[in-house]
Design a protein around this nucleic acid. Structure first.
Lengths: 140, 140
DNA sequence: CTGACTGCAAACGTTTTGCACGGTA
DNA sequence: TACCGTGCAAAACGTTTGCAGTCAG
């Protein structure tokens, strides 16, 4: 894991305490909403402004450091940009997990059928996570 | 194509002129935003209210007649529920197309890797549509 | 006829903007 | 020191709600 200061410098953003904290929260949570960023940030920086969170997240998105993830039936969450992956969302506990799967075949087929030149894919799968399956089985 | 009145009745919604128009616009456009629904609806029903559009779309979603589609970098659009499909979005002209592709393999693999029981998949592919590829080639 | 639907206006939650102050490089 | 970033307040959006009048069944 790269130092957060370096990460910011590489994207031409100054390393302010607020930004370092945002990066750290993104690392820790994997996926996090603006509201949760704000609430957690306030523990350490009680006078932080929501505007600061928005401005920074938007700058990080523009600079390619962060990515917005739009999920069905919930507010957008944010994650650090890393290798391409897809998102699994649990219907019961709402946890979000990344998994890495080859998507070449589906993309190839989509290109063949549609004639599009595909540049990026966004895949979200909704279902029940192993923990919640277990709980459901025990309750039955 | 089923009559819109019947479609509404099947979903236990009264067939008002506004609702019939919404269904017709969904048919015609395939995917349409609230704003576009409103602007087009006003041509025929000048005094229609945005609230009516929202209320109706939300009811149609709840009754399983309509589905919300969240796309990267744009407002949500709405479509009639039909067979599962994925969305192709053109970077240049922003057109949205549906294509039907088997997703069993990717879902199977995701289930195996993650242990999730998957219930639904949301797949969006971003790229350049054939028309815009052609245009780009001609300009070069 | 009755409950559901519409249009209007106000309220709401989220995100953006402008500006003066403060901190990073 | 110069500029960028922050916090605050206000504004701008998008969406929802409450209500009185109207319409579909």
């Amino acid at each position: 894991m790269k130092g957060s200061t370096v990460l910011l410098k590489e994207h031409e953003l100054k390393a302010t305490p607020q930004r370092l904290k945002i990066i750290s929260m993104l690392h820790t949570h994997g996926h996090i909403s603006i509201e949760d960023l704000y609430n957690e940030m306030r523990k350490e920086f009680p006078s932080v402004s929501l505007a600061t969170i928005y401005k920074n997240i938007n700058q990080m998105i523009q600079s390619g450091l962060v990515q917005e993830v739009k999920l069905p039936s919930q507010k957008p969450v944010y994650e650090l940009v890393k290798e391409p992956h897809l998102h699994m969302v649990c219907d019961k506990c709402h946890k979000i997990e990344d998994i890495v799967i080859g998507t070449e075949k589906i993309i190839e087929e989509a290109e063949k059928i549609s004639g599009y030149k595909i540049l990026e894919s966004f895949i979200t799968l909704r279902g029940i996570c192993p923990d919640c399956q277990k709980k459901a089985a025990e309750e039955a």
